[in-house]
């Protein structure tokens, strides 16, 4: 299998979609002449031209809203928002419009739209550039929210998102772009809404998504050295959410830890934990563990930012507490 970066996996998949389907085009800030904030679309403008690769004004609401309109008319736009922090300026179009028109039109309208959003902290970017807000969007019926952790998943899930007839928020943790991994050959596609067991284990189920999955895998590796066998489940998709895989695992291991990068309060991890209690309470030998980010705006200073983000050590601590 070829090895490539997360960024290359995304670029490959986007390029392929542009080649395969004339209805696909990309809109975003600095995706063309500049080459993309995270260089995912570097070279695309020269290759596909201005009709398909559209540099946009810094106006997030019209970026998303015009894509919604174009999608309603039968095109298949892809939007790149510079980061999920700026998606808040488009929240009206994402939540009040993209997620609603199908339902409130009685099924007359489709919005096949992929919104790619870099997310997460850890890059010394401070409070306004380091949030992981995907859980907010996962709250909304009518949206799909996907957050791959590996290059293979990035490719497979993006391909599925591009072929989906709904609005998909495609969350890319910004620290993942340079990570490498094997990616299956061919038109590799992963159905949306299926969690993935990234490591099998028998004693604890560790549930996470996006970049923190990598920390969980590291934790599992180290715990194995101490004789604790951890199963690591990568949700990959927050909505639809594959609780079947999670519950089946928890029923086997009888212990669970949920790990997320961002705040606990009102967040997605609490949702998963509630669903574990609802679906597997009688199978649990210990309360579900919960690893999350510090409840603070992201600080800039290197040491403080590090302290605000969960690590493999935090995961290990939480797992050990269950025994």
């Amino acid at each position: 299998m070829p090895v490539m970066t997360y960024r290359e996996a995304l670029a490959l998949t986007l390029r392929e979609a542009l080649q395969e389907d004339e209805r696909v085009f990309i809109m975003g800030e600095d995706i063309g002449a500049y080459g993309g904030t995270y260089a995912v679309t570097r070279g695309f403008l020269a290759e596909f031209g201005e009709r398909r690769i559209r540099d946009m004004p810094i106006a997030e609401s019209i970026i998303v809203g015009s894509a919604v309109g174009a999608a309603m008319a039968g095109l298949r736009p892809v939007v790149e928002l510079m980061t999920i922090n700026f998606s808040l300026l488009a929240m009206d179009q994402i939540v009040n419009h993209a997620a609603k028109v199908r339902y409130m039109s009685g099924g007359q309208v489709k919005v096949p739209l992929v919104i790619r959003v870099p997310s997460g902290g850890g890059n010394l970017l401070g409070a306004q550039h380091s949030q992981s807000l995907e859980g907010w969007y996962a709250h909304v019926p009518g949206l799909k929210v996907v957050a791959p952790s590996t290059p293979a998943d990035a490719r497979g899930l993006l391909r599925a998102a591009l072929r989906d007839d709904n609005t998909v928020l495609f969350v890319e943790n910004a620290l993942l772009y340079g990570t490498k991994g094997e990616v299956p050959e061919g038109k590799y596609e992963i159905p949306l809404g299926r969690a993935d067991i990234k490591r099998a284990g028998s004693q604890v189920t560790l549930v996470s998504y996006s970049r923190l999955v990598l920390s969980c895998l590291e934790a599992a590796q180290r715990l194995a050295g101490e004789g604790i066998e951890v199963e690591v489940i990568d949700l990959r998709s927050l909505r639809p959410l594959d609780m079947d895989t999670v519950l089946a695992s928890v029923k086997r291991t009888r212990r669970a830890v949920v790990a997320e990068e961002t705040w606990k309060t009102g967040g997605f991890g609490g949702e998963v934990i509630s669903l574990i209690y609802e679906g597997a309470f009688d199978h649990l030998d210990a309360p579900v563990g919960w690893v999350a980010g510090a409840e603070v705006p992201m600080p800039y200073a290197r040491n403080l930012e590090k302290a605000a983000l969960p690590t493999a050590d935090d995961v290990i601590k939480a797992v050990k507490k269950l025994f």
Binding site: G65, A70, M72, A73, Q93, V101
Partner: peptide, 8 residues
């Protein structure tokens, strides 16, 4: 914005 998108 949606109208603009339909025009696009």
């Amino acid at each position: 914005p949606i109208a603009v998108g339909l025009a696009l």
